[in-house]
Design a protein around this nucleic acid. Structure first.
Lengths: 162, 162
DNA sequence: CAGAAACACTTGTTAATACAACTATTGCTT
DNA sequence: AAGCAATAGTTGTATTAACAAGTGTTTCTG
């Protein structure tokens, strides 16, 4: 399947490159542009960096505002080792605390502290506003939902078996 | 402007969270999933890491297979300082060489070497195949073009003025 | 109920990245 | 033309992340 496009894509023909390659290129650039925009906004507002927000947001949406380290690493798509040190920094800042599981002493939870909850409630509107600006300028709600669905279907095939 | 959507987004209503927030979440996760997949493939095939491919691919598409450092940094959405050291590594590996501009002695070009061109021609099919797998499984060519168009419109509003 | 295998997380080392200061060249202003 | 701001790239420092090995816990197996 897609033999024709694959053949056409093999040589460096930039004029009619594979539609999927074009989509990937647009995906990376758009992602980078929005990340950059968010980081600039957070830095200008004297907020912690974007990864901190992502951690806080993920934990806050979990039951009891706590999340297993492994699940959190998977949700953020980063390594476990990286998450350990990222959470270390958030704990040192008083935004998270580590709690432990009674039934399985291997697991540790990253749990939101009141300070973390407060900070998140300050950051969230700023982040959401920035996203609304970036998205809603050229995208209707229906288009955004369609985009989300399309991306999720791509992710499912990228994550699972090839 | 955008008062209604901003108001709706301000409180952290998770049940009917902003469609744009959902789209952003899907965008980050899909991007991360595909990057991870590509990196695993490259590592397994004993190829250089993904940033090297992105540099080679960008330079190869430029006229005369060379690109100004500043333009290259902008295309890859990384800092100038970071690009300097990234190109250093590629030069040391013999894949790029630095050439200079006659008319403006400030600018330096990253120029593809024959070895870089050869390596790129080996890597490109592998990367494209991986992308085809990830995308074409659940996406028609028409859908991919639509996705690209949607992402580009988002990027234009994210990059330009808010 | 030992002992090995699997699991969840942490730590230690190494490489990559960002950020800010620096050098060199060009263009603008008067 | 002299001086100053702007531009293009590099370098130096410190933060961040990745990869692999290590620790403690649980589960499976004979």
């Amino acid at each position: 399947m897609e033999q024709a496009t694959a053949d056409r894509a093999r040589d460096g023909d930039a004029s009619e490159r594979s539609a999927h390659g074009e989509a990937w290129s647009a995906l990376t650039r758009t992602h980078a542009a929005i990340v950059q925009r968010l980081q600039e906004m957070l830095s200008a507002a004297d907020f912690p960096p974007l990864p901190w927000y992502e951690v806080l947001a993920a934990v806050s949406e979990a039951p009891d505002e706590r999340m297993k380290m492994g699940d959190l690493a998977e949700a953020l798509v980063i390594t476990r080792g990286g998450l350990t040190k990222l959470v270390d920094r958030l704990v040192k800042a008083g935004l998270l605390e580590r709690t432990f599981c009674e039934t399985d002493r291997r697991v540790s939870y990253a749990t939101l502290t009141p300070a973390g909850r407060d900070l998140l409630s300050e950051m969230r509107p700023a982040v959401i506003a920035e996203l609304e600006i970036a998205f809603s300028a050229n995208l209707s709600v229906a288009q955004a939902k369609d985009l989300r669905q399309t991306l999720d279907s791509v992710r499912s095939s990228a994550c699972g078996a090839g």
